[in-house]
Amino acid sequence: MKAYTRRSRGARLRVHEIWDRYKGENHETALLLLILALLGVMAIVEPSALTMTFVGDIIRSGIVTLALALGLLLVIISGGMDVSFPAIAIFSGYATITVMNFFGVDGALWPFLLASIMGIALGSLNALFVARYRMETLIASLGTQVIIRGVLLAFIGSVYISTLPAQLDAIGASSIMRLGNSPVNILVLPVIALAFLVSWMLRKTMFGRSIYAIGGDRESARRVGIRVPSVQVRIYLIAGALAGFAGMVHVVLSRHASPFELVGTELNVIAAVVIGGALDSGGRGSVKGTVYGVLLISLVQNSLVRLGVSSYWHVLVVGVVVLVGVAIQAQASSREAKTTRILESTEASA
């Protein structure tokens, strides 16, 4: 009996060791396993659904979420929360199309640039409230969100624009390849490039490390000489630019512009980032985790479509997935907290 327990304890230890090595800095591996498990369930319940088209659909629906999530990730790592990014995104996308129509100009690249610049301008509102007036980030962005939407509907327009300028529309129709029946739009490329860029920035630049430092302990960051307000301003400007770009991607992919879209998707995006390991208390999170988070949400939604579940149920299911994901994260952190305690006592006995 005793030998048995000892052996099983040893085995458990070994599993722990392996898990510790591969779990990833923010438990990304757990997330990946969850994604695989879901795919496994799909393979049993609806094997015919697992086609390349399915993969293509997931990528297609995930691309805007990812573009939005990248900006939010920066905010959340720094210990903040932002709900204004969908408003910034749709403002930038819709206003750019309105400007193009108003002046009768067309273009393929510069509209994306213009939308990003609008995003920066709108993001500067958040930056002002957070860095200058030290407002709580969530409250500040709740305020700016309403203002931005108000200005959009009151001054820019509230009508549905059914056709985009020709060159933009052409981008919306051009694909790099087809996965089954689902075309993969060329805009996947810049979004992936942005993901790599943000990932590099977070890991390898002083700015990126400062974001983690501020999220870890703001006062400590100040004390080592990090200029906290300046870092925050840059975070909100970059998040604005990414939201603006994402807004344009959304408009081009959907091949129409409606000022009423995107708003309401913030929960999905927040869910993707949080499931991806970015705790709301700050200092944690990675692009890799966020990508997994986006994939998971996108997979769930597309699976529900394939299973013929009414779209009314989607919100509910996404909610459950969010809770499960966050619970896994919280569980993992609390397990680590326990490890710390034991570590202290074993150290003393050593």
Binding site: M206, R209, G215, G283
Partner: peptide, 26 residues
């Protein structure tokens, strides 16, 4: 005044990095 979420090495190197005004870090 440490950063709980960063590694020991990064905590130790943080003020040196700030002082060096580094842009890219290794």
């Amino acid at each position: 005044s440490l950063f709980p979420n960063l590694t020991v090495a990064e905590n130790i190197a943080m003020s040196a990095r700030v002082k060096a005004r580094s842009k890219v870090v290794r």
